[in-house]
Nucleic acid binder design. Sequence first.
DNA 1: AATAAGGTGTTACGCAGGTAACACATTAGG
DNA 2: CCTAATGTGTTACCTGCGTAACACCTTATT
Lengths: 217, 217
Amino acid sequence: MNETLRLARRTPLLQSLTDEEIVSYLGDGSFITAAYAKNGVIHFDGEVCRRLEIILSGKVVVERIDESGNLMTIGEFIADDMLGGNLIFSRNPYYPMTVTAREPSVILGIGRERVFELFYHNHEFLRNYLTLISEHSMMLSERIRHYVNKSIRECVMSYLNYERKRQNTNRIALGISKKALAERIGVQRTSLSRELAKMRDEGLIRFDNKTIELLYD
Amino acid sequence: MNETLRLARRTPLLQSLTDEEIVSYLGDGSFITAAYAKNGVIHFDGEVCRRLEIILSGKVVVERIDESGNLMTIGEFIADDMLGGNLIFSRNPYYPMTVTAREPSVILGIGRERVFELFYHNHEFLRNYLTLISEHSMMLSERIRHYVNKSIRECVMSYLNYERKRQNTNRIALGISKKALAERIGVQRTSLSRELAKMRDEGLIRFDNKTIELLYD
DNA sequence: AATAAGGTGTTACGCAGGTAACACATTAGG
DNA sequence: CCTAATGTGTTACCTGCGTAACACCTTATT
């Protein structure tokens, strides 16, 4: 319980609650925690969303798997982030994608009506919540914007330019495997590999397993 | 003013407000209306979002235009729908797409802080708002789900099956032009045309300018 | 240290779909 | 009602990328 409280305290969304409130909600079942093993499914595609969830620790991915088994990663969320924020108040609150624990994770769930209660009494909680779902929505738009109907080259450039800015270096450290990068862009791994090789041959980049170095401006 | 009030009254989001409130907000500048001509740009890509907007009348499209001039329609909104709901509370409130009036439209704008006031004092307004943005978010997910990395055939089937269910008939009335359908799916018009021809030759469908008839189950 | 499990690069093959260039049909606006 | 603008169908051409099948790494697991 103490550990849960400590983790909960840290999340921006729950910062506006007092220790007493959190402990009380944990006690009366308003807040429920659940632990998931690595690669455990947190929510299946089509499942009903009953709670707003906050990731207390670990790493969670939202992905779509089509009939032919192709995988596309829609989003990755780490500790302090929120799940189901856009779903819980919808008229059709069914998860449109599969949610999986990429690493062992602990999730805190809050029932719909308790969330409303918090909105009503705690304006800061509401503001934080609104900011979070806005960001999520923007992320989805960005996904469409950057990756829909673009060539692999364009997706890769888009990713590299973003990372260059974020990491502020031409020698980009790949936090993820190339396989994961391919899934995020939504292309075959081999196709990504081929495109990277082309870019290398054209003198645009150099790369190894861990880094990509940008040779252009 | 009377006309504006009448239109505003009708929208689900403003239903929880009294006539007096609406008139007062229109009077003191909290609510601002603006009219746009057909094909007028309501918001440019990159513009700051300062207001939550409600479409009082007309039809509005959100579209992305890439460097090479290709157009993809992300969403279409008609009277009573909301614009900017996911943007206004984001930390980076810049329109990620272009918003255009497809038909002459009247828009009602509410400043950010006034929206918060309404949330605080009017719980029904908050609930309606949350439902609306949830639906918008779901729409974006659906877009990704249905149209990303799918063949034209799959996109078309997805669209046809949806419309068959919605219109409850095998003779689907195309509410939009084939050009618009191509833009919604995000493919070249000629490619859509080619695919439809193939489907016709395979005996799956029959079609003319206004309708598509489904010959399969 | 040994073995399994997963990530990586490469390449030949084929096809879905973008491009461009038509002619023709339909709609909107004066 | 006429003309301009916009939508529609078609087809030849070409390319980007998915598929499949390898061999070779690198990282977990015992």
